[in-house]
Design a protein around this nucleic acid. Structure first.
Lengths: 137, 137
DNA sequence: TCCATTCACTTGCTTATTGCAAGTTGCGCA
DNA sequence: TGCGCAACTTGCAATAAGCAAGTGAATGGA
């Protein structure tokens, strides 16, 4: 008997082989795409995600980051040893979700005029200065 | 004290005014976009949605249809009296989610070659003016 | 040396949402 | 007098989310 797991490292086609269903099985919840958004905006570290406006709980963030890594949308790498500290970045597969976010933004802006994008964040320097720069998702 | 409800009939900006967050507050779960997909594919009735491949539970379907109606993405109308029977269709606002679905399909097909779209469903004969021809979401 | 702080998470517990099975209502039909 | 269909509703167990607090390694300061 065959197992129904592991297409590129994650469970595949849990509910059906419909591409929409498959997408939703990966990012169909209230938080995952917000983490992708943050990564696109330039955030990289745990505290960056924690401090976003939507106030994700830390256990949920940890869970989603693990799932995103397992699904190969996100990569985790140490930016220093002693103490080991990690940052996250999008893989190509994760980057390619940009059009999905763009479509959602477009829909929201059309139907909810009050919405507005957050600005991009400039990557950290050694001295930890986050300077904001224009440019949306 | 002001309430934080009702932009076009539904709770607005629950978590932040980010357009992505706003979109996810409306359709950010595992089922809502599948109902939209079914509607785009030509399904209209409760049993149509129930019989989709993903096997949505009937209570969740009822809940999502109510929320979609409240958010003005979907409209509910009787197609017969005695006994009253209802069918659902997309509003313009719901139709305009097409690009979101298209982006998800595109992403899934690129990264998960095994996925494939369901075909459109032919509308029922009793009550329909809008005849749709084949073509995916 | 001791203490406070930072960062990247875990853990424990409460509350909310899902999933599953079964039940309900109104009517038409044999 | 049932039987069945369509569109839901209800009850309850299982799963997930939300919240607060805690952990461990290291670093900087009094």
């Amino acid at each position: 008997m065959e197992d129904d797991k592991t297409v590129e490292g994650n469970r595949a086609f849990e509910r059906s082989c419909c591409p929409i269903t498959n997408g939703l099985d990966i990012f169909g919840d209230k938080w995952t795409l917000l983490i992708i958004r943050d990564l696109i905006l330039g955030k990289r570290r745990y505290q960056d995600f924690i401090s976003s406006a939507e106030k994700i709980a830390s256990n949920i963030l940890a869970d989603r980051l693990k799932k995103l890594e397992a699904a190969a949308l996100v990569r985790r790498q140490a930016y220093q040893q002693k103490p080991a500290r990690y940052e996250y970045s999008l893989t190509e597969k994760g980057e390619s979700l940009r059009p999905v976010l763009a479509a959602i933004i477009s829909w929201s802006q059309e139907h909810y005029p009050g919405t507005q994008l957050f600005p991009s964040v400039r990557p950290r320097q050694a001295t930890d200065q986050t300077v904001k720069v224009a440019g949306g998702v």
